[in-house]
Amino acid sequence: MTAEMNEARPLLQLLNVSISPKKTPSRLLVNDVSFSIAAGKTTCVVGESGSGKSLTALSVMGLLSKQLQLTSGKVIFNDGLLNDNKSGEQDLTLLDQASLRKIRGAKIAMIFQEPMTSLNPVLTVGYQIGESLTTHLGLKGDTLKAKIASLLEMVGIPPSRANSYPDELSGGQRQRVMIAMSIACEPRLLIADEPTTALDVTVQAQILKLLDELKTRMNMGMLFITHDFGVVADIADNVVVMFRGQIVESGTKDEVLGNPQHPYTKALLDCVPDAEGKKPLKPIDYAWLKNTELKESGLNEEKAA
């Protein structure tokens, strides 16, 4: 697979997506966001809380809360038929709930931040992994059991744990179960919303490695939401930096981390403590940032100045 092929037909394209509360449509929580994700690549969306990164991810799945609406924009999903120019493409924002349900879990899957609250405590983990296999692929009986076992093995949990309940597993194991659930139907796109934030560093490192391996093996696209630049450096191919609902900078990992252009990106990178302890910490001066206009022309003005 060459880079050009991916450029030509990205797996997912967000085009001018804006999100606002239904009551106040003029208040844009996500403002004109566009980016794309290629198969087999990881795009990291980075930003502080309230920057709109989670909303952006939820809008892909059509999972926005009832108080919110997509004011404009398209979410074009290209279903993996990479050799065919047209047929795979569909705008997810135009689909009804029934068609979306067919895509969710099967073609696009999601992992959430808190592995304890995302699993049902009264069902065994094996059952929960099996749910989407039954719904989407119609697996039953021994084939289902065998598939569950192989999925658990793939994420590094002994298959015998299929009969365990979530509370019998550690945080890292629960997140592995979440991953097994999400990849059960071999989705084309995996959306991971801060999947390692609640975990210990050593466990985080294992989970990041696992996700990266699975992405390569299954040629999945990954939309990875995080606030941690360390994680970005480990896992990203492309980076999108969001601030107050807008994209302030996007590019490849090396471009954004190595040579940040926007003052906000620079400021955000400056307040990440480095493991060597050489770099002094510099908090963001929001008063100063307010003066650097963020609207459409913001980037260009900054470059011209």
Partner: peptide, 27 residues
């Protein structure tokens, strides 16, 4: 001391912790 432990971690557990810091490779 902080510098000693970060530069010359003696115990395996400390070494693992330090190796797991995200973004270490890139830094």
């Amino acid at each position: 001391k902080v510098e000693d432990i970060y530069q010359h971690p003696q115990h395996v557990y400390t070494q693992n912790l330090l190796a797991a810091i995200p973004g270490k490779k890139a830094v």
